[in-house]
Computed example of a mutant assay.
Amino acid sequence: MFTCIHKCFYAFLIRLLLMLFILPAFSFTVPAHKDHIVCFVYHRFGDGRYPSTNIAVDVFRGQLAYLKQNNFTVWTMGRAVHALTNEEEIPSRTVVLTIDDSYHSFYENGLPLLEEFGYQATIYLNTTHVGHKAYMNWDEVRDAQRRGMEIGNHSHAHGHFLDFPDPEERKEQFFDDLNTAQAIFFDSLGFSPDLYSYPYGEYDPVLKKALNSAGFSCASAQYSGVLYAGSDLFEIPRFPMGGPFATLKGFIQKSQMNPIEVISKEPEMIVMQQNPPLMIITLKNDCIDAEFLQCFVNGERNCITEMQEGPDYVRVKIISRDHLAGRRSLYTITAPSKDKKGWCWYSHVWVNTAISEE
């Protein structure tokens, strides 16, 4: 469920497309970083009424055809997390396709194409909207599951949990919503998912700890980046495939991205305590060429950086030159790999809870 401000956040991300033109073209090679998985998030399929979260059907077909022609492995989120937690070998070209919100356009236009190409995906449902206009109903959800789709929890009411400033109240509200959704899943499907996708991609340590204690195996966010063996499985990054990002060229480039491994970052929180926020992040430099590291704020080169290199790390201080205007904003770091075979990507999302989306 997207509000005007949420769509504006996606509009801000339009400028990230410029980064793809800044990155020089490179041929498809074995990734510079092994044991990583590129995850994508979709919402609507062939529904031009909502362009910021929609992908054209012919573009989605082209993306799936590209995966097939280039021998990609396509996993569900559950399969990917199982492989990572059990330290299984990850095929060199592995992606995960996820769908948030269970709009009917997926059932009508997206699911048949996944079947045609023999791929599975993970659908995250917010249970309060199942059966409403423009959303899948439970019969369709069960049918999608029979046809190979994996089901995850996207909350019950799709709320802004970070708007509760008191941690105990936030945890209580989150658990109430989570338990409501899990009960509905069990009544409707005969099981309760152990996969979660944060509404609006907003999370904090309170929500992560709650999901872990409730037995969930992972949780997906909505900032861009690459999942790898050392990732926090309760804040999995996903590249958005909606609006200006929903192109074949962008999909191909992002499917070849490598992760930038994070040693530490300050602050850990994504809720802004000052505007603009200062981030100090320490990165492994074993696979990135730090000399050509770039920083972006909402897709623009509008940041002040200070970098210190060590024997096996690079520490970067980043702050935006200007105040961040939206509820959600991104600091993004890119760098070429040392072997010159690809590019590496990391993003950090900031949430300004003073801006309401209700």
Rank of each mutant, 00 (worst) to 15 (best):
D312P: 01
R93W: 04
A56I: 02
T98K: 02
K209C: 08
A246N: 08
E261R: 14
F245K: 03
A183S: 14
D139C: 08
A56D: 15
Q182F: 01
M19P: 02
N71P: 00
R49W: 03
V206P: 04
Y346K: 07
P199D: 10
F161P: 00
E168K: 15
Y196T: 12
F40A: 08
A183E: 14
Q294W: 04
K208W: 00
V262C: 01
L162T: 05
F251C: 01
G242T: 07
S224Q: 05
V316I: 15
T305I: 15
A354N: 15
D204H: 10
E172S: 12
N352A: 08
F175W: 07
W75S: 03
Y42G: 08
V130G: 04
Q273I: 02
S102T: 12
A325C: 07
L283R: 02
H156C: 13
F234M: 08
S102W: 03
E300Y: 11
T180F: 03
N298Y: 05
P205K: 11
I37P: 07
I151T: 04
F60K: 05
M257H: 07
P336L: 02
L84Y: 02
C8S: 10
K341H: 13
L16Q: 11
F216D: 03
V351E: 11
E306S: 14
K249V: 13
P51K: 03
L114G: 06
G48P: 06
A144C: 12
D143A: 11
T247K: 03
E88M: 14
